[in-house]
Design a binder for these strands. Structure first.
Lengths: 240, 240
DNA sequence: GCAAAAATAATAGTAATACTATCAAGTATC
DNA sequence: GATACTTGATAGTATTACTATTATTTTTGC
């Protein structure tokens, strides 16, 4: 009994350590100075999420952000070259966070099909808050990803930035889903396309729920998860 | 025999009339002055497609376009309020054109399943040129839709612009696909989501083929059409 | 063929954006 | 207490995204 208690205590302490030290790693070339390394940096991240969510990425400027956090435009430029890089930082952080959730929530599942189902759950469900990161409003960041992520790669600089590794986390997340699809269904011919379609499609369906309801069937009572689980499982001929 | 010849002649003449008079209708509130109504207007459309394709929508300005067509910035402003409206015009034109292709190429097919298959073909295949519209480079316009369309609705003004009807053609196209899905499979619960996923997903897969090849299986030899046909037909339990 | 109207061009000007550069002030560190 | 580092303040530049005005050219209606 005491042994069990001690054992449990060790697990809990392990988890606490894991959680308290946990930081999502973003490619260092995306920033000039690591925003996690200072108070100002953390405030830049915290309030850029709030401000972009409020006024949209187009209207967002470093000047407005500076006014908001009582800091100077020029100081923000010491952390990020421009607002595009800041958007890359935010979306990278999001995909890193989602990847972490995906790994955590599927790690201990042995059945490939159950694993895949749980992965679909994590990827297509609405974003929920995570107390581990006090400076990040995950729900608003999720909205930013829905509304702005595609603008981060639909540019003339994609290929260069892709070579630099700015989209590596996003692609790695999709590779993980692809591999889970393959484990469930080794003969399926389009695992990467299916994985990317689900990840992109989930963002798209969430957008449609908010703005173009006539071209989606998703709603609060039947969220994207339902649609995508049915889609993937039927495509792979796996029974629900 | 003569009767038959006369009959054929009438059909051909009908088609010619149809084709020669054919214009894709774009919501009039998108422009200040109809670009199809003048030589300058046509040149604006023709060269905006070339220029946006070349330098991307972000770097595109009315000033550059003016220089390119030997015309003045201020003259272009008489046709379009701003470059966002011009993008709306171009993408509206594209979706109107694709809808016309969809209707033409599926109209005479009676079997709902064959009709749906042909619809998937039209929507997911690479864009091909259409000699009917001399001022439009359909292939480049298709590239613009892949790279820029989502920017036209991922804005803070979507809801207002949607109310104005700026996205009506796009939504109508998806409704047509949704209805074809329902005719093939009346019990399927997510026809609109499936239709919007295919339309958006097709653009996305074309983008991935060009820039993020590791997260797609699509390539010249196995284009998005193959993936999406398999996806839709399996989801609906229709045998290929 | 000419006057009126319409379309286009030219020019100028404004506010905002997206920065860069410089210098001053405050803070941390050794 | 000197030094390095961070942040703040100010100024300045080129470009963008327009608006306004006036001049010139083209179209058209009679």
């Amino acid at each position: 009994m005491i042994v069990l208690l001690l054992f449990l205590r060790r697990i809990i302490s392990d988890m606490e350590r894991l959680f308290s030290n946990l930081t999502i790693t973003v490619h260092p070339k995306i920033y000039l100075k690591d925003p996690e390394s200072s108070d100002l940096g953390l405030r830049i991240i915290e309030h850029s999420i709030l401000l972009v969510d409020e006024i949209g990425f187009e209207a967002f400027t470093f000047k407005k952000l500076g006014q908001r956090i009582g800091s100077n435009e020029s100081s923000i430029y010491r952390y990020f070259e421009n607002k595009h890089k800041l958007l890359l930082y935010l979306t990278n952080w999001y995909w890193g966070w989602l990847e972490y959730k995906l790994v955590m929530e599927t790690y201990s599942i042995n059945s490939p099909k159950d694993k895949l189902k749980q992965a679909l759950e994590v990827i297509t469900r609405p974003v929920e808050t995570d107390a581990s990161f006090s400076h990040i409003d995950e729900i608003k960041l999720g909205q930013i990803v829905v509304n702005e992520f595609s603008k981060s790669y639909l540019t003339k600089e994609v290929d260069d930035e892709n070579k630099e590794g700015y989209f590596a986390i996003y692609k790695r997340l999709i590779h993980r889903v692809r591999d889970m699809i393959l484990e469930s269904c080794p003969d399926y011919k389009h695992p990467a396309s299916l994985a990317s379609t689900v990840v992109d499609g989930a963002l798209h369906q969430h957008f449609l729920m908010d703005h173009f309801t006539s071209i989606t069937d998703c709603k609060k009572s039947s969220p994207p998860t339902v649609f995508f689980k049915h889609l993937v499982l039927n495509t792979l001929n796996i029974d629900a």
